[in-house]
Design a protein around this nucleic acid. Structure first.
Lengths: 212, 212
DNA sequence: CGGCTGACAGGAATAAAAACCTCTTTCGCG
DNA sequence: CGCGAAAGAGGTTTTTATTCCTGTCAGCCG
């Protein structure tokens, strides 16, 4: 992303690095000395005024500064929030049923929408498994990809990937913890209980997302 | 250094990375569709025309592209792969059942793993819907979030969100196209056919992912 | 201490980019 | 195969950045 404040700060930083004022930098670049005046950074009506891309090119040319170095000064050293590129609009199904939630092409529109992001794989140590065969029907079909968070607390109702001692991997729905272990239900039959003792469970991973 | 040709090449590269034309990128950014027309890159007298810095800021905002990544393409003109931060290990369920696929904590290990990434929401115009009520059981439970790609081709077996004229939103499984319309099946009952004429379908969105 | 120069405020004029408009071409879908 | 939408050419109008101009202030040098 690129903001008005960042651009002007980068210009000021560039000037300082070459022992110049903004006015001096402008002159060095063949521009009018008042081009980068602080008083010219907002228009009379308060609207931000952006230096032109050509002016930026001229000051880089005049100083010999690589554009990569110039852009590096845009960074503030702050820890970055989730990149905007992982965000997407999100709303409830019933809100989405309202006429004004979409435009005529099926794109979200209007004020009913919040935002959601995919979790950061690096942050949560996520991994994915691709389902094969029909064992998980009708919930998961062959070819579906499951995104799993290991080492994550699980609660009632969560779907989990369990590594069971002597039985391999299973997908279950978490029901409750008991003193002796944990109780699950089968994925598609909530009435079918599966009880596992603590030592039968090698590890659990919580299933976050499934591809369709 | 920063040249006229590099800036326009970077804009074109950004557009391609997000599956857009220069015209589409301009629209996505809230600019006039003709802002980045190739015919507007030189003035009538042959003088180079520079896109404004504010326009560049807008396209970065609209795509979520970090300015560093944009600038990196100035030099090379090459497109960047999906950011490493969206990647995660992926393998098949049966491979995952092998002993060496995980360490003792349930973290992926060894050579059985490929990679997968979440799709880029900005790239595909994704949006999310949160399921409420029990209408979609047992496939989707209340609280599940569905990630939907509008304006995306659908194939047999895909789960779709359909906006049906006079009926609102429905979730169906695509079976096949017919001359008169499209045939779907109900989500949990593949034998229950739903046939919709073309004019009954306002739009379709393909369901890519579901939270669990 | 006074003069000169540079930095900068702020307004007007000029130049340049975006928006608007009309039109043609191409491609994809029904 | 025809229709509609997207992309883009190119011209005109509007908006915005730069240049030009006048003026003030601060710092430095003689």
């Amino acid at each position: 992303m690129l903001s008005h404040a960042q651009v002007w700060a980068a210009i000021d930083g560039l000037a300082r690095r070459y022992g110049l004022s903004p006015s001096g930098l402008a002159k060095r670049a063949g521009l009018d000395p008042t081009t980068f005046n602080p008083s010219k950074r907002f228009a009379g009506d308060g609207r931000p005024r952006w230096p032109s891309t050509e002016s930026l090119a001229k000051i880089l040319e005049a100083t010999g500064e690589p554009v990569e170095a110039f852009v590096a000064t845009l960074a503030t050293g702050k820890e970055k929030p989730a990149p905007a590129s992982r965000m997407m609009p999100c709303t409830g199904f019933s809100e989405a049923s309202r006429q004004e939630a979409f435009d005529t092409k099926g794109l979200p529109s209007g004020s009913l929408w919040g935002e959601i992001a995919f979790p950061d794989p690096a942050n949560k140590g996520l991994f994915a498994l691709e389902v094969s065969g029909d064992d998980q029907l009708p919930i998961y079909r062959a070819g579906d990809v499951l995104i799993i968070a290991p080492l994550t607390a699980v609660r009632r109702g969560d779907r989990v990937l369990a590594k069971i001692h002597g039985r391999g991997l299973s997908i279950l729905t978490m029901e409750r913890r008991t003193q002796a272990g944990m109780q699950f239900s089968a994925l598609d039959q909530p009435s079918e209980a599966v009880h596992l003792a603590h030592d039968q469970i090698e590890w659990l991973g919580r299933i976050l997302w499934a591809s369709q």
